[in-house]
Design a protein around this nucleic acid. Structure first.
Lengths: 114, 114
DNA sequence: CAGGATCCGTTTAGATACTG
DNA sequence: CAGTATCTAAACGGATCCTG
């Protein structure tokens, strides 16, 4: 039997963001703030394979962070964008970023208290 | 060649917290707010093996989140506690927790806008 | 007591080829 | 265009036994 993820909200949220490409995908969708095509994501993340891109998008969609809309035209088109709740993650992502910048600076200075 | 982790601070910080037991360990050290022995951690995390516990502690120590102090007495004793910078992670961990609680509530209500 | 060493199954990422 | 399917390799977590 697998060890179940406990019910700590932090662990649940972190697990939703764990995946090699989820933050890069998030950042790209956040910055552009409009529906983005599958092929645009692929072009923007040069070293990702289709299998992985699709996998990460499916997981983000399953967790309600992004929304997917398919336009089955002669040239099939699929667009992704952040959901409202996904977009609201920025409140803590910004805090993480701030902490990270400080941490990285401290490291470079040799961790002198600051 | 491994794909390098890019220089996004969010990715760096999240990678420091990725590991099955890092948040549970963090929470225990944070809550107690004093040096905690290896065996206490082990008792508090019943389903963790020594190998994994040691691994996760080493990584947290390497990333400057916790500090390790060894007392080589007749009965060897090792204590762990959060570093100052580790303890300061609480500012974003609390935000993640808040977001998670809201997200979980929304999920239970069926994602009605809120 | 607090590990280290070894082995092993699962998960994750990636390369490549094929398809509606 | 936007995926599947298949295969391989590396990372991760865990069980078990050994040790200063």
């Amino acid at each position: 039997m697998p060890v179940q993820l406990n019910d700590c909200p932090v662990e649940i949220v972190l697990s939703m963001l764990s995946g090699r490409w989820k933050i890069p995908i998030y950042r790209f969708l956040y910055k552009n703030n409009k529906p983005i095509r599958y092929s645009e994501l692929q072009r923007h993340l040069p070293s990702i394979s289709k299998k992985i891109l699709t996998e990460q998008l499916r997981e983000l969609e399953h967790d309600g962070i992004i929304e997917r809309k398919s336009y089955p035209e002669s040239r099939p088109r699929v667009e992704y964008r952040l959901s409202l709740s996904g977009r609201s993650m920025i409140v803590f992502l910004d805090k993480i970023s701030d902490w990270g910048e400080r941490y990285i600076l401290s490291e470079k200075r040799g961790m002198q208290q600051n």
